[in-house]
Write a protein that binds this DNA or RNA. Structure first.
Length: 558
DNA sequence: ACTGATGCGTC
DNA sequence: GTCGGAC
DNA sequence: GTCCGACGACGCATCAGT
């Protein structure tokens, strides 16, 4: 029985260690000391996940419920917590600080009991996740409160971070893979095998237990158990991608949502990018999948909303379909999804991931009608690729993907066997009108900036969202100092800023927004330059935003 | 019965 | 999704 | 090249509060 304190001490050491190898050594040594149930839990926890996707459980705890639990456990106000958060930029340190000053209330009687074990914490988290229905938030809060009232400051630090599934100690899937391989290498585990097992199960705890038992090889592809999807890397240009791949399989990059379809006779399951079961939301895809001419199969593709005009609908419309539980058929009629299959993972009892793409494609074409296949052209010609690219964009999609026809299906891998090409979008010059204090690495820095455009009619600035990427650490520090002088108002973690500075912001697409006063927002905004040379009046106007919105992606909106 | 906040998934 | 930083 | 963290908009479900 391992104490939770031991786990917390490990996390502290790992967090304080800079080098990744050293981090992995620490984790590996810890894993070796655990019994089986603890091992399973600890592997997930170190990475900051509480439940593997297959369990279909979620904590349902975010900052709000966490801080409520902390304040109740320790008898401090939410204002105090807000102050600490602004100062530290770290929910974990807030929890530690609050617990340090804890006034024993409520569960004081438990103070006498034994120290928390990993299993204790895991049990409480289970209770938190299971709570649903009326008063469920109270139940979540009470369970967390119980943990905080028994925890030392160090334990509280990691209980808090775990509760919101955000560990930030520098170990992710890659680090844990290496740690498991190192811990159990004598039983035959190596990074390659561990990674493979993880990509097939998506459950690091399960992988670790099997690594220790020496049964990693038993974790294999099975119908009804989703596997990680192969991902595309961003290519520089069509020419460079062709230079990399040579003769490439060229496909449109659809603006939709990824789906992994499992079919077993008449049974169909559909899994999303994060391997959530989304079958119930996508009846027409289920229907389509039933027509696949195979006894059993796992297929990979994209679900795209196609409007009456044959053009893709806004991505926002696709979001209305995913995760929907009610009025599914009604929305399906209004926002019909089409399936474009581009890969085959499993066929009639056998994994085909080891076959080259061109053979998988051949098999796919045998079992699926052309109407549900993504078009594919195999070519080494730059002109041909450029033509397909133009067509994809003109059709309203994102760009193209160039794939190596000789490559295997590598679950979970983002590599140069699949290269995506997207256009460089235009930029907008927008006024910084607010900001938010950051967390973690961005603690005590302004880490996110609210942007506004000019409304020529009224002379007002209308906001259109935030930008938080494209900054170097250095530029962020400078900007924070500069904006500090311009702060007009502070409210929680948000700050209002006197309009004076212009950011040039790149984006993928302009979206209609129900959340911002301009009525528009940017998809994937990133800061590309601070335009010290521009004055407020030279910032872009709403009129320009609207006209860009109407003309984008070959779309003409009347 | 309705609204707003919150969490969590898609990109 | 994007991006920067560390290794 | 790879991994990790610090962040973006949006829409649905759920729950608390009215």
């Amino acid at each position: 029985m391992t104490s939770f304190l031991a786990f917390a001490e490990l996390c502290q050491k790992v967090e304080a260690t800079a080098g990744s190898l050293e981090k992995i050594n620490l984790v590996a040594a810890f894993l070796s000391s655990l019994d089986e149930p603890e091992l399973s839990v600890a592997c997930s926890y170190v990475m900051g996940t509480i439940f593997p996707p297959s369990q279909s459980l979620a904590m349902g705890v975010g900052p709000s419920i966490l801080y409520e639990a902390l304040s109740k456990a320790c008898g401090c106000s939410t204002e105090q917590i807000g102050e600490m958060l602004r100062a530290t930029g770290d929910p974990g340190l807030v929890a530690a600080g609050v617990v340090e000053k804890r006034r024993p209330i409520g569960f004081a009687a438990f103070q006498e009991s034994r120290p928390l074990s990993i299993a204790d914490v895991s049990e409480r988290f289970m209770a938190v996740a299971r709570a649903s229905g009326k008063k469920s938030q109270d139940i979540k809060v009470k369970n967390l409160q119980y943990l905080f009232s028994l925890a030392s400051p160090l334990e509280a630090r990691y209980i808090a971070r775990l509760a919101i599934e955000d560990m930030r100690i520098g170990i992710g899937e890659g680090g844990m893979r290496d740690a498991i391989a190192l811990a159990f290498h004598e039983i035959g585990a190596d990074a390659e095998r561990v990674e493979q097992a993880y990509n097939l199960t998506n459950d690091m705890g399960l992988v670790a237990v099997n690594a220790r038992r020496g049964t990693l090889a038993e974790l294999s592809i099975m119908i009804h158990r989703p596997i990680k999807m192969m991902l595309a890397q961003l290519g520089e240009s069509i020419a460079s991608a062709l230079g990399e791949i040579g003769t490439a399989a060229i496909e449109w990059k659809y603006d939709g949502a990824r789906v992994q379809i499992h079919k077993d006779a008449d049974h169909v399951w559909i899994f999303s990018r994060r391997l959530e079961n989304v079958t119930a939301s996508l009846p027409e895809i289920v229907q389509t999948a039933k027509e696949i001419r195979a006894q059993s199969a796992i297929l990979d593709g994209e679900a795209v909303a196609i409007g009456k005009d044959g053009r893709p609908m806004a991505f926002q419309d696709i979001l209305k379909r995913f995760r929907r539980k009610y009025n599914v058929e009604k929305l399906a009629a209004r926002i019909p999804l089409r399936l474009f299959l581009f890969d085959l993972i499993y066929l009639d009892g056998r994994s085909v991931t080891d076959l080259p793409l061109r053979e998988r494609r051949d098999l796919l074409e045998k079992i699926a009608d052309p109407g549900i296949l993504a078009d594919q052209v195999v070519s080494a010609s730059k002109e041909a690729a450029e033509e397909i690219y133009r067509q994809a964009l003109a059709a309203g999609h994102e760009g193209i993907i160039l794939k190596n026809p000789a490559s295997v299906y590598a679950p979970g891998k983002r590599g140069k066997n699949w290269l995506k090409i997207k256009p460089v979008m235009e930029t907008l010059d927008l006024v910084v009108i607010g900001a938010k204090w950051g967390e973690g690495r961005r603690a005590s820095l302004l880490g996110s900036y609210r942007l506004g455009c000019q409304d020529a009619a009224t002379g007002n600035l209308l906001d259109m969202g935030f930008v938080a990427t494209g900054f170097t650490d250095e530029s962020l520090a400078e900007l924070t100092e500069m904006f500090r002088e311009l702060i007009v108002l502070e409210k929680g973690m948000e700050v209002e800023i006197k309009p004076a500075v212009i950011f040039e912001v790149a984006y993928e697409e302009i979206q209609k927004s129900p959340n911002y006063s301009s009525g528009y927002a940017l998809r994937f905004p990133r800061m590309v330059a601070v335009r010290y040379d521009k004055s407020l009046e030279e910032a872009d106007s709403l009129e320009r935003v609207v006209s860009l919105y109407r003309g984008q992606r070959g779309r003409v909106i009347p």
